[in-house]
Design a protein around this nucleic acid. Structure first.
Length: 596
RNA sequence: GGCCCGAUAGUUCAACGGAUAGAACGGAAGUUUCCUAAACUUUAAAUCGAGGUUCGAUUCCUCGUCGGGCUACCA
């Protein structure tokens, strides 16, 4: 039980005894006591004044007196305005700490019995991954870990956009300007090679538009009439007809891209349980269109196109089927969602997709609801903000995109330089060092991105991205390494310790109590992160833990402690701390080194 | 035009409607016989504006200002 819920329950009992009123324990507000006041946790009593019909301080005093008299874990209280500060007794810290130290799965919440699918990443196969994808991937990966820790069964899914006119553009450019070039012959990573083709197409296209405009055509028309664009569309038609040549080229180039993506995913430490390809799913949803027509929620226009009128819901009319009978993006999304819910019997489905698609998901949920699917409410769009650079928004056309592979490599190099400069790694094997540099570089990148509230637009400054100080991944990794170092030394000195040594009857210091208090908060933080689908909650918690340890460590000579019992208590404390830190960082997908 | 989202120290980020709005970086000043100084200590510095809701508002509501996104028979 978390300290908060413990107080909530006891306080509700107090209210019942004192004022003969039943209240829900969850409705009571409990917070960690601010450090300028005496106490461990604080009950906010303002909301209770209506029940007590008494001044804030009197109410607090009444409840405080009751709690001290009836609850052995609560030792003392003081009441300041509407804040009832409660001081726990050592009995309580013993209980909390023993519970944490003995629980090998600390932070894992009880099973909910829910099955949740989370879709993220969902890349296009016409260019390599960039910084925006990294935010998506890290969020998706971390949120799935958090949902799992929240007691849910989680299925990580991705839907690869492997078909469409954008891929045809890359294919066309390859035919025209890259023929014969492969990742093998050029030494270029597959997804980058295909991305180069895409850029080449764009160049070609722009030149053609300029030529047409120079020839007297107005720009709007020129943009539609550029020969290479038309060719790309013809290629798409051929692709849909199953033209063997086009299909072969498509398969080959997609193969390059997948190989490239695999490397990037591997570097990021990300994997999926289920991979869908749009080339297989784009037909889905057509039966739903018929169903909608039968139900009268869709209408067919004279030209054969099918629409859903959402104007009554404050949105626009949405196209579902083109006049030529082909489906659009949302149609297949409808079909894919239906299939997933049916196939996996999902309780919830989370989509990690950028906030530029807020409208799309609003429409998606609305239409599914109109089609009579009760589970439309179980769809959650985890909408995240864009990543901007100091010079503004990333624009692929202006070449200001931060490439994922480049970035990962840069972080690694930076980690390597800084680590080598510290001169602490001389006795490590080259392989160990490599592993460590990767771990630190990646930890810096991941933490930097994940610590920001998902829904906010964030700024990424490549120059400052790898900080090893302050609220950063490496700071936490460093802290963990220090803890492990102490524990190693204790082992080497033959000091045995274990959960049995946990007893704060030794009178722990204020800082030790604070650490225990912080540790006890972890399950609550996990629950909060699940609720908000926000890894940032965990990230900031982990930082607080690390920071507090550093402060504790600074003026507590742990291994020089003479008293055996106190020494063992301290070792158990920091051992528990390192475990909790590890568990928390694991939820973010960040590895912690044993030493650095 | 319509719809959606955001605005907090110089900068990047925090703060279930709760106490004197927290950190970090950068700035200024310190700490190394000691288990990792990639650390620690001290210090200056902020809620876009105007109303409203209430015991209490950075947080909720309205209006305004500024910024971003969406508004394709693209995906």
């Amino acid at each position: 039980m978390t300290p908060e819920s413990f107080i909530q329950i006891k306080a509700a009992e107090a209210v019942k005894a004192l004022y003969q009123t039943e209240i829900a324990p969850e409705s009571l507000q409990v917070q960690v006591t601010r450090k300028e006041f005496e106490g461990d946790y604080t009950l906010v009593t303002f909301p209770l004044l209506k029940i007590s019909h008494s001044a804030p301080e009197n109410t607090g005093n009444a409840i405080g007196t009751y709690l001290v008299e009836h609850v052995p874990e609560i030792a003392a209280f003081n009441s300041v305005k509407g804040f009832l500060n409660l001081l726990f007794s050592p009995i309580y810290w013993d209980e909390v700490f023993a519970e944490i130290a003995a629980d090998p799965e600390f932070g894992q919440l009880p099973a909910t019995g829910k099955r949740i699918m989370i879709e993220f990443s969902s890349p296009n196969t016409n260019k390599p991954l960039h910084l925006g994808h990294i935010r998506n991937n890290l969020l998706g990966d971390s949120v799935s870990r958090i949902l799992r820790a929240g007691g849910n069964e989680v299925i990580k899914a991705t839907l690869v956009n492997d078909r469409g006119v954008h891929i045809c553009k890359s294919m066309l450019a390859w035919q025209k300007a890259f023929k014969g070039k492969t990742p093998a012959t050029t030494g270029i990573k597959g997804d980058h090679l295909v991305g180069d083709c895409y850029v080449a197409f764009d160049k070609m296209y722009k030149q053609e538009v300029r030529d047409l405009v120079a020839g007297g055509m107005d720009e709007e028309t020129a943009k539609k009439e550029a020969p290479c664009l038309k060719e790309a569309h013809e290629m798409l038609v051929k692709w849909e007809q199953g033209d063997p040549e086009v299909r072969a080229l498509w398969k080959m180039m997609n193969g390059w891209v997948f190989e490239g993506f695999d490397q990037t995913y591997k570097a990021l430490g990300i994997s999926f349980d289920k991979v869908d390809y749009e080339s297989n799913t784009y037909i889905l949803g057509k039966e739903l269109v018929q169903k909608g027509l039968d139900m009268g929620v869709f209408v067919r226009e004279a030209d054969g196109s099918v629409w859903c009128d959402l104007t009554a819901d404050g949105l626009d009319r949405k196209l579902l089927l083109r006049s030529d009978g082909t489906s659009v993006y949302i149609t297949q999304d409808l079909g894919t969602a239906e299939r997933r819910f049916a196939e996996y019997n999902l309780d919830e489905h989370v989509y990690v997709v950028g906030n530029e698609q807020d409208y799309h998901f609003q429409v998606l949920k609305l239409i599914l609801g109109k089609l009579g699917f009760a589970w439309s409410d179980a769809i959650y769009h985890l909408s995240y903000g864009m990543v901007e650079l100091p010079e503004g928004k990333m624009k692929s056309r202006e070449g200001t995109v931060v490439d994922a592979d480049d970035l990962i490599e840069k972080m690694y190099q930076e980690a390597k330089e800084t680590s080598l400069a510290s001169g602490k790694l001389e006795d490590m094997s080259p392989e160990e060092q490599e592993r460590l540099f990767r771990m630190i570089g990646l930890g810096a990148l991941k933490y930097f991105i994940i610590k920001v509230d998902p829904k906010k637009t964030m700024l990424f400054n490549p120059k400052e991205s790898i900080d090893f100080n302050g609220n950063t991944g490496p700071f936490i990794q460093y802290t963990h390494a220090r803890i492990r170092s102490i524990l190693r030394k204790a082992c080497a000195q033959g000091i045995a310790f274990g959960p049995a040594d946990v007893t704060t009857a030794l009178v722990p210091s204020a800082k030790e109590i604070r650490l225990i208090k912080l540790l006890g908060l972890f399950p609550g933080k996990v629950a909060e992160a699940v609720e908000a689908l926000s890894p940032a909650v965990i990230a900031n918690y982990a930082y607080e833990l690390a920071k507090d340890f550093n402060q504790y460590y600074h003026d507590t000579p742990i291994l020089r402690e003479e008293d055996g019992a106190l020494l063992r208590f301290r070792l158990v404390l920091i051992d528990t701390l390192s475990r909790t830190l590890r568990t928390a960082m694991n939820l973010l997908g960040i590895e912690l080194p044993e030493r650095m």
